[in-house]
Design a protein around this nucleic acid. Structure first.
Lengths: 248, 248
DNA sequence: GGTCCCAGAGAGGTCCGACCACTAGAATAC
DNA sequence: GTATTCTAGTGGTCGGACCTCTCTGGGACC
């Protein structure tokens, strides 16, 4: 156990954690106003806010100015906002993100083939159709592309893997936003998505995995070409921890 | 872009983010004292602390009472502390965590077989030997077990996947701490680890993946047996968002 | 000369109480 | 009935006081 006593922030976190674990607090629920809650916990409002801030940063709480503080609703997010920062910090390479995505999504596709339900197949079919319909509009196309992959993640029946995928892809899109796709590639992309859809619908897990891998490998090399001459990579960390505070 | 102006906390986060991305701040570096830094940014110390707290929650900063605030050093962690909380919140099932782990580690093993270096092989060999030496001591054994998997993650050459694995396994160990393993299973476990090691050393990616999958599948069913009659699962969320604050 | 102990400096942690800013819903005006 | 304005409630920011922890350097002691 981590020290559950001292450290106000941990006191708050553990209090709320136990409320969640006991089921007393469920997604969408609202916690009492800060002043009231702080008084009830016998701590200052500032400390309460520290704890809530911690939970909010982890995606567990949702703080809305002027409205209240709620337990996060919607799909789980695992360190979604932190990945790009951690990436900058530890020098994650673009290919590493692609590799992670390729592995996750391939397995997700295989699982979707095994466990997907009719509703998922229908949604996938719908998105494929939309993709074909928007090959001339990269902006629109991208939306359906994202949705397609998201449906697969849902169909996999494993929310943890889905959340991990979401984390990676959103970080990837941050980098990708600049590289607008050329629409002549989109037809090809749509074809691949259709293949993936068919493999999943026919419950052919191996095929789904294979095609998904192929799709993402192609997507990566396509983007690599566009990027080419980009930022200088800093591989090894020439980190020399400075004890004196950095000049800001 | 998210609103980078208003919201003091985001101002702080973005300021530090840009410092990190520009290389002005590196792992291990120390940021100025709160009072000084706050004054320099023209914000109150409280707001600065909110922002720092946010970054600390994401694992980007490391705040040490009485010492100072540092940019996180050591291996990256992605939402490590949040997963168990998110799990309680979204009703993650134990088998889902195992599945995620199985997938990640299997691929990690395959990658390690392809990219591992001599130093990794040596470390793996060392840990296997230690495992055999401690089959009579589950506590000690576990340490080397964990190290073994961690070395594989490093050898994979993909820190992102390694960090994801670390997140899952640490959440898993939280649950597992109660179920002490019976030492008669450990010999069998050590044998499997040795097989994994051999597959990796001989650069047989497929074999490494297969054996790792087998190992983790066995580990899961072993633990399932021990657990058996546990906590009641709440599958579907009968979530009914309450607008009125919950009674605490 | 080396070792141990302790006070002080410097850093983060907590608290208070006031005031600002936003949101949603009620009251009002048209 | 609809549009506008007001207001209560809630989170956000502030600054400034005081507490607690860590590290370190100087002195007492051996």
């Amino acid at each position: 156990m981590t020290k559950t006593d001292t450290h106000m922030t941990m006191r708050v976190v553990n209090h709320i954690r136990s409320l969640i674990e006991s089921g007393g607090l469920q997604p969408g629920d609202r916690i009492p106003p800060e002043r009231e809650f702080a008084h009830k916990l016998r701590i200052s409002r500032a400390s309460l806010r520290t704890g809530i801030g911690y939970l909010a940063a982890m995606g567990v709480m949702d703080v809305r100015h002027g409205v209240g503080t709620f337990v996060a609703d919607g799909p789980p997010e695992i360190g979604k906002s932190s990945l790009s920062l951690l990436g900058a910090l530890h020098g994650f390479q673009s290919w590493q993100m692609f590799e992670a995505r390729r592995i996750l999504e391939s397995e997700l596709a295989a699982l979707a083939a095994e466990r997907g339900r009719e509703q998922h197949f229908a949604a996938l079919s719908e998105e494929v159709a939309e993709m074909y319909a928007t090959v001339g509009n990269p902006m629109e196309y991208l939306i359906h592309d994202i949705r397609f992959h998201r449906v697969i993640a849902q169909a996999s029946g494993n929310p943890i893997l889905a959340a991990l995928m979401e984390t990676i892809t959103s970080a990837l899109y941050d980098e990708r936003r600049k590289t607008a796709e050329r629409s002549r590639d989109l037809k090809e992309s749509a074809d691949l998505h259709r293949e993936i859809y068919r493999a999943i619908r026919s419950r052919n897990a191996g095929e789904a995995r294979t095609v998904m891998t192929r799709h993402l490998t192609m997507a990566q090399s396509a983007q690599d070409l566009e990027a080419m001459a980009t930022q200088p990579k800093n591989d090894g960390h020439p980190r020399k921890a400075r004890k004196r505070p950095v000049e800001i």
